[in-house]
Design a binder for these strands. Structure first.
Length: 242
DNA sequence: GCGACAG
DNA sequence: ATCTTGTCGC
């Protein structure tokens, strides 16, 4: 598929201030609402691996529980990881992989934050806006924001706790940015799984983002397309190291 | 100076 | 994320 808005391509050569300003522009362009009603959607999971100084991006496309396509791309890493600027480190590789994808996805699930971000423009939002594609951010840890009235831990399976904007986020404090979603939990009290932090990327509201993430979990913590992309990226990274 | 910090 | 051994639990 094509990058609809080239002006939003993440350029690692920008200054930090320019990156942050582009993120504010992306956040203004992003739509954090929508219920995503689609019959038999093509859903892609996106993940990366980093063998040596390269970024390997992997996309797995699924429809009705079946894998229909895989795509990937490899680029050289040019900047280090900086909290809040992740999309400028990994985005070029991800967009290159999307340009290799032949099918037309209806939704993308990313491994990282969407609206849960200092400038409301995390990886899922940046990519979703650049591609003009509905997207959801699925993170394994919380970048910013705070849980609203969390119940006792450990959260039981199916629990959803709102993530509210705190003073680190450039938006009215208390705004619902996403949800902590306990997609999987053990029953006994021995081991315990952390929740996912799910937020809108583009064209979905926070509740819909949480529902979409949950709906794609098949007995595992991560949504199936993301699990598959994670696995695929790992395979490609192993080959790249050889 | 101290704490926070997606992947 | 990546570098790595063992260990716990079903």
């Amino acid at each position: 598929m094509e990058v609809v808005y080239p002006k939003f391509r993440p350029d690692p050569g920008l200054s930090r201030a320019e990156m942050e300003e582009l993120q504010r522009e992306i956040a203004r362009e992003a739509v954090f609402e929508g219920r995503f009603e689609c019959d038999s959607p093509v859903v892609v999971g996106v993940d990366q691996a980093f063998p040596d100084e390269q970024a390997v991006s992997a996309i797995v496309a699924m429809r009705d529980g079946e894998v229909i396509e895989r795509a990937s791309a490899v680029t050289e890493l040019s900047i280090p990881y900086i909290p809040g600027l992740l999309s400028f480190r990994e985005g070029e590789s991800i967009l290159a992989a999307f340009e290799e994808l032949e099918c037309e996805p209806d939704l993308a699930l990313f491994d990282g934050s969407g609206r849960i971000h200092y400038r409301q423009a995390g990886l899922a939002t940046h990519m979703g806006v650049a591609l003009d594609l509905p997207s959801v951010g699925v993170a394994k840890s919380l970048l910013c924001g705070r849980l609203s009235n969390p119940p006792e831990e450990p959260f039981s399976e199916g629990t959803r706790v709102p993530i509210l904007a705190d003073d680190r986020v450039e938006v009215e404090e208390g705004t619902v940015l996403g949800y902590a979603v306990q997609t999987r939990q053990y029953e006994g009290g021995s081991r315990y799984i952390n929740p996912l932090y799910v937020s809108p990327g583009h064209r979905v509201d926070p509740e819909t983002a949480a529902s979409l993430a949950q709906a794609h979990c098949e007995g595992y913590k991560l949504p199936e397309p993301v699990r598959r992309a994670d696995s695929y990226a790992g395979e490609l990274a192993d080959e790249a190291r050889q």
